[in-house]
């Protein structure tokens, strides 16, 4: 069982226009912990920094500051070389995340070989077949190429690839946003089932509040690089405190309001002085992450 601790994660990108340079802070002091058997959802608009968090956890980007530590079953930090045995990622676009040149078997065999899960052709094929079965795909797909599969099937292959090294922490970066509505639920249920079977720690990145509420235990709401609200899923969705979360919640279609005038809905509050604060539902108060002390409520 692996726990992932993320502390004060900051990512800055350098922007160059001509000779001028400026820095863009994409992620500002993000802190959370992924625990085995629990799903944490990160919700936010495009550009809020949630994918950057995912890429940093997958070690595709280097954090500007802050730490990401994977703690093994013994509670000791995982060493650098073993990090990828523990933490894997599922990408957003299943049409881009599988190499069109290679067969499905290649995509599963490489991580199996790299992480020493299997040796020799026979064993690799056997294990790859098992992985396909775990994600509800027929083993006959093994010799197919990605373009012969549907979006949902490809995303299942991508999930199988993430499981191949025996990862205990899965970062799913909007795993269903590129899929047909009809196959979304199947992929999400698959993730939920695998998580229960293996007691995985899952970071579920999405902009869909409804699936975040259904499939996750905790929700972090991100806006402009900051976590603006955090807490148990139901509390965040049903009792939003931060103005941004309220806007998000209000943007979700509400069947009960059907037919009424839009202006009848309560207008979400305009930006306030609380924009830079974080509301923590567990603590029940506002927190100023820059000041390291509780803010006045």
């Amino acid at each position: 069982m692996t726990t992932l601790e993320v502390r004060d994660l900051v990512k800055e990108f350098t922007l160059r226009s001509g000779l001028r340079r400026s820095t863009l802070r994409a992620v500002h002091k993000v802190t959370f912990t992924l625990v085995p058997g629990r799903t944490v959802a990160v919700v936010g608009a495009s550009g809020s920094g949630k994918s950057t968090v995912a890429r940093m956890i997958a070690r595709l980007e280097k954090p500007t500051s802050g730490t990401i530590t994977a703690l093994g079953p013994d509670g000791e930090p995982v060493r650098d070389r073993a990090y990828r045995d523990h933490v894997q990622m599922v990408f957003q676009d299943p049409f881009a995340s599988l190499n069109p040149f290679h067969s499905i078997e290649h995509h599963l065999a490489r991580p199996l070989l790299l992480h020493g899960r299997a040796e020799g052709r026979e064993e690799v094929r056997e294990q790859a077949a098992q992985l396909l079965e775990r994600v509800n795909l027929p083993t006959a797909l093994m010799d197919r190429r990605p373009h012969e599969l549907s979006g949902g099937q490809r995303q299942r292959v991508a999930i199988a690839r993430a499981l191949a090294p025996g990862a205990q922490v899965i970062v799913a970066d909007e795993p269903v946003s590129m899929l047909d509505v009809s196959s979304r639920l199947g992929v999400l249920n698959l993730l939920a089932r695998l998580q229960q079977e293996d007691r995985l720690a899952v970071l579920y990145i999405t902009h869909d509040l409804a699936t975040a509420r259904h499939f996750s235990d905790d929700i972090l709401v991100m806006n402009r690089g900051r976590i603006v609200e955090r807490g148990p899923a139901d509390a965040v969705i049903l009792d939003p405190h931060h103005p941004y979360t309220r806007t998000l919640a209000a943007a979700a279609p509400n069947p009960e309001l059907r037919g009424r005038l839009r202006s009848a809905e309560p207008e979400p509050k305009a930006a306030t002085d609380r924009d830079h604060l974080t509301y923590d539902h567990d603590a029940g108060r506002w927190i100023d992450i820059d000041a390291d002390q509780p803010a006045a409520a």
Binding site: F91, A96, N99
Partner: peptide
Amino acid sequence: NRDYVAAAKVAGEKPWRVICVEILPN
């Protein structure tokens, strides 16, 4: 910059293998 190259890196492929096996065929 395609996702499958990123996925190969996440899987732990070495740079020369990413170039020869993932990028070069394409």
